[in-house]
């Protein structure tokens, strides 16, 4: 599904990603952990095509296709989805209208007609019920005045609506209380299939109890310094990151 080879990325001449290798197969869930400022969000945004970052060496392949020359929206049309760490507000644009536009733009790119209104409504109803989202919420302006938790839940609602091939969830757990966390994690689990892949970025082991990863990677100072199975997450929870920092420094 996704293959990243020796990826370097910088912003304003400051190198943030310093050679990342990562392979994610269809049907897998990978977790990326690591201390603040290590480059997790940068990696997520570079995959999504954020042009603010300059990609030096390296490649990102999605189903064998190099993404280098594709714009963010083209990557989205190919099935890349990013649940943002900090979702932005768009005043005056309702969640429903935003989703309608997003879905129809992707369909247009695939040469399809707009989704018929009744089909759209059915889908909205289904996905909002799955994530226990109040219908009134969907007519509110996108993220405007949403609580931290509401924003994150709304990101996962969008994921459910768009049904991406590769979903990257950047600290989706922050801001969620325990009940919301369970609902969101359940939603994500329902979206798991053998045809798609999910990358979960998180600080805490807590989320990984609900969304159980196949692999765990530790990103530190722009590099993946350790990879393992879900037990690695437990180890990190216990010991913190310092031992890895020391290891990486050698």
């Amino acid at each position: 599904m996704l293959e990243i080879k020796n990826l370097h990325a910088s912003v304003e001449d400051k190198e943030i990603l310093k050679g990342i290798d990562l392979k994610v197969n269809a049907g897998e869930v990978h977790a990326i952990m690591g201390p603040n400022g290590s480059g997790k969000s940068t990696l997520a945004e570079v995959i999504a095509g954020q042009e603010e970052f300059e990609v030096g060496e390296g490649n990102i392949l999605l189903e064998g296709e190099d993404l280098e020359d594709l714009s963010p929206e083209e990557r989205a049309h190919k099935g890349v989805f990013l649940s943002f760490q900090y979702p932005v507000e768009i005043p005056g644009v309702s969640v429903t209208n935003f989703m309608k536009t997003a879905i129809n733009e992707s369909r247009k790119a695939q040469g399809l007609e707009d989704m018929p209104a009744n089909e759209m409504l059915k889908k909205i109803r289904e996905k909002s019920e799955m994530l226990e989202i109040d219908r009134k919420f969907l007519s509110r302006s996108l993220n405007e005045g949403f609580s931290g938790g509401e924003k994150k839940r709304n990101e996962i609602f969008q994921m459910a609506m768009l049904e991406p091939k590769l979903a990257i969830l950047d600290e989706t757990d922050s801001g969620l209380d325990i009940d919301a966390l369970r609902i969101v994690a359940n939603g994500v689990n329902k979206l798991r299939s053998k045809d798609n892949a999910i990358i979960v970025i998180t600080h805490y082991q807590r989320l990984l109890e609900y969304i159980v990863p196949d692999f765990v990677h530790v990103l530190y100072n722009g590099k993946i310094v350790k990879s393992g199975t879900k037990e690695l997450a437990l180890e990190l929870e216990e010991k913190g990151y310092d031992w890895l920092k020391e290891e990486a420094a050698v």
Binding site: G49, P72, E73, A76, H77, F81, F84, F98, A102, E105
Partner: peptide, 10 residues
């Protein structure tokens, strides 16, 4: 960028 990421061009 947020819109782009959802498949909506600039």
């Amino acid at each position: 960028f947020y819109c782009n990421q959802r498949g909506i061009d600039t």
